[in-house]
Design a binder for these strands. Structure first.
Ligand SMILES: [Mn+2]
Ligand SMILES: [Mn+2]
Ligand SMILES: [Zn+2]
Ligand SMILES: [Zn+2]
Lengths: 157, 157
DNA sequence: CGCCTTTTCTGGAACGATTCAAGAAACAGA
DNA sequence: TCTGTTTCTTGAATCGTTCCAGAAAAGGCG
């Protein structure tokens, strides 16, 4: 798939970028593609995926692109304690996350009460609340299997 | 209050440290005191407070102490996106936080449903959930007043 | 289509927060 | 008080992210 290949998804991405007033560039399309393919990837993971498709792309460009996309509302950025920022294309539905304390894997959970910002929104203590971010910490199925294995060191997915 | 001063609170702290099998040292007592006096302080804020009381204390020592306290369950560490880690002495009740998007101030909110881990605990997607961390993002009363003031730059508290 | 302005990319340095390492100092128990 | 261990100090290293200045590319307009 050398330069020039156009997949159906690409066409949609191009429209999406233009509609948002963003210029259409190969790195941007590749980032959109990576976001579609990966699950809650870090900047690093996105960069890796983009490079696989385009060859060389600066880390800075990926940061810039993800920043622009976040500002445009194309992606959501979450920053779980102890982990670098993670991105996801699923926006417009304030869903929440399940994060594994062992391997850090992230899984989506639909909003606890269905509405957003769910959980007694409006104000509390005078604050004007606009979002309720919920993170459920626990152990993922995969890590539950690998109990307190002695030497540990086990990674999954 | 030069070396030697012993306040009632100190006595309790000493017992607490010993019970946890931690050695009683001036830096540790000062950190406990700082945690009592400050509201969701950062490592920096704690360090500053500790130095005011003891003179010189290495930054590393404060990190070590806070780390040990967190491990011992004396303090809780929260890490809001875009902010360095914050600590608090209020533990044993998984309460939540209201964070101002403008100034970063943090306020406590009692658990949404009263229990911990509140919000459909147990498991979801196979995860074994042990904690539901909730952060309400919004604008604090103080920052609401200072609307979109032109040159901004306003800080409070 | 070709030129000009604006935005994006690049490569490299700078940063803030946190962690690592090694030795000196301070505790706690005998 | 002596001793072994924990804790504190110092100084450097990491990690993720951001800041910069110049080169390259994209979009708008004649
Ligand atoms: Mn998600
Ligand atoms: Mn709190
Ligand atoms: Zn896991
Ligand atoms: Zn505020």
């Amino acid at each position: 798939m050398p330069t020039g290949t156009v997949t159906p998804a690409h066409v949609g991405d191009i429209v999406r970028l233009k509609d948002a007033g963003l210029r259409v560039t190969a790195p941007r399309l590749a980032v959109l593609e990576a976001l579609r393919a990966l699950d809650h990837p870090s900047v690093d993971a996105v960069t890796e995926a983009v490079r696989e498709r385009l060859g060389a792309v600066s880390t800075q460009a990926v940061y810039d692109i993800l920043g622009a996309f976040t500002a445009a509302g194309f992606v959501r950025r979450i920053e779980p304690a102890g982990s670098p920022a993670l991105f996801e294309g699923r926006v417009d539905d304030n869903h929440h996350h399940l994060i594994c304390r062992v391997c850090g894997s992230v899984a989506d959970v639909d909003c606890a009460t269905g509405h957003a910002p769910c959980l007694t929104p409006s104000e509390r203590a005078g604050f004007l609340v606009d979002e309720a971010e919920v993170i459920y910490w626990g152990v993922c199925p995969s890590c539950q299997g690998a109990r307190v294995s002695p030497e540990g060191g086990k990674a999954h997915a």
